[in-house]
């Protein structure tokens, strides 16, 4: 896993633990809703945190089709690489 991916995953873990009170490990295969209990407000908090941290916009990407942690990592990584500034 390269740097950007690792950083995105770290930020997801940080936000889940600090802002959304998700206890326990967070792995790439976990589903945000079913496994990590992230509800619709939690998903918003996560999206805004990632947008702020990586200075990208997730609006208009395929973010709405995200199911797992890995899906989210890929979407954010792509936005960073494409320089999708907000």
């Amino acid at each position: 896993m390269d740097d950007v991916r690792a950083e995105v995953l770290a930020e997801i873990r940080r936000t889940l633990a600090a802002d959304l009170e998700v206890a326990g490990p967070v792995e790439l295969h976990h589903q945000l809703a079913a496994d990590l209990q992230v509800d619709s407000v939690g998903a918003l908090v996560l999206a805004v945190a990632l947008e702020d941290r990586f200075r990208v916009s997730l609006a208009g990407t395929d973010a709405p089709s995200v199911v797992t942690v890995e899906d989210l990592v890929v979407v954010v990584e792509r936005a960073v690489r494409e320089g999708r500034a907000r």
């Binding site: 809703a33 619709s40 709405p64």
Partner: peptide, 11 residues
């Protein structure tokens, strides 16, 4: 407006 993460189909 659309949700930010996930559940686009339901939206």
């Amino acid at each position: 407006p659309p949700v930010r993460l996930g559940r686009l189909a339901e939206y």
